Simulated scan of single mutants.
Amino acid sequence: MHPDTLPLPGDPASTVMRVGQIGFDAPAALLDRFGLQLQRVAPGEPIPGSFWGDEEAGIIGSTVYARDDTPVHSLLHEAGHLIVLPPERRPDVHTDATDSIEEEDATCYLQIVLADELPGVGRERLMTDMDAWGYTFRLGSTRAWFEQDADNARAFLEARGLPS
């Protein structure tokens, strides 16, 4: 979500799960499995490498940056961008990981799969949060895309030995 359109109280996007609700330990352990680091940013401090700014996660090299108020879906999305990249490309990443539709689709799919690895999150909650935040898919919802229209993303991940 763009910072100019941040959710207002009562907006469905205001109910998305935040990293502070689940803590940093489980996400850090998950990212470590892929050779990534999670860096906690102090409350109110700008998040380094954040494409959208405000509370959205950021990426620089092999590090994902997040605050307590960062949405879990944002942390997983940015981590997913780094995971789908070959490790030799990661050092060049700063803020914007790709302009490839294929990698973007794979990242969206992967963030949903990885949500199952975080206690208290899971794919059902993550897909609901993605819809509330404003992710858009041509079939109208994250779930419809994931279940009916993401064969290319799944194939991309499988070809690289990534969770799918």
Rank of each mutant, 00 (worst) to 15 (best):
A153P: 05
N152E: 13
A97T: 06
D149Q: 08
F34C: 06
T142R: 05
E104R: 15
G10W: 04
G134C: 01
P43Q: 09
R160K: 13
D4R: 13
P86G: 14
C108D: 14
L85A: 12
A26S: 13
F137D: 08
P119C: 14
Y65V: 01
I112Q: 06
E124A: 14
D25K: 07
R154K: 14
H81W: 03
L139M: 10
D131H: 03
Y135F: 07
S164K: 03
E103M: 08
C108E: 15
L8C: 02
D68L: 06
E78D: 04
Q111K: 09
E88Y: 14
P12T: 09
L162F: 02
I22G: 07
Q111A: 11
I60D: 08
P43M: 06
L126G: 09
A132T: 11
H2N: 13
W133Q: 10
T70L: 12
E45P: 00
N152Y: 07
L114W: 15
L75C: 02
A29P: 00
A28I: 01
P7E: 13
E104M: 13
E88F: 15
E56D: 14
L110G: 07
G10N: 12
H77C: 07
L30P: 02
T107I: 08
G140Q: 11
E55W: 12
S62L: 02
T98R: 06
D4S: 10
A150P: 03
T107M: 01
E104V: 01
P27E: 03
R18S: 08
G120Q: 13
G53I: 00
D99K: 04
R40S: 04
L36Y: 00
T136W: 12
V72N: 10
A79M: 12
P163I: 12
G58N: 11
Q148P: 00
D151F: 00
S62Y: 00
P87L: 04
E45K: 02
P163S: 09
W133E: 10
E103P: 03
L38C: 05
E147N: 01
T128N: 08
E88G: 07
R138P: 11
G122L: 11
L139Y: 08
G122V: 09
I101H: 07
I60T: 13
G35L: 08
T95D: 05
D68P: 01
H73D: 14
L8H: 05
M17I: 11
A42V: 15
R123T: 06
P3G: 02
G61C: 12
G161V: 06
A97H: 02
G10T: 07
A42N: 12
D68W: 08
R67A: 15
T63C: 10
E78Q: 10
D11W: 12
D131G: 13
R138Y: 11
A28C: 04
V41M: 04
D54V: 14
T5Q: 10
I47N: 03
I83C: 12
R40G: 02
G58R: 04
S100A: 09
Q39A: 15
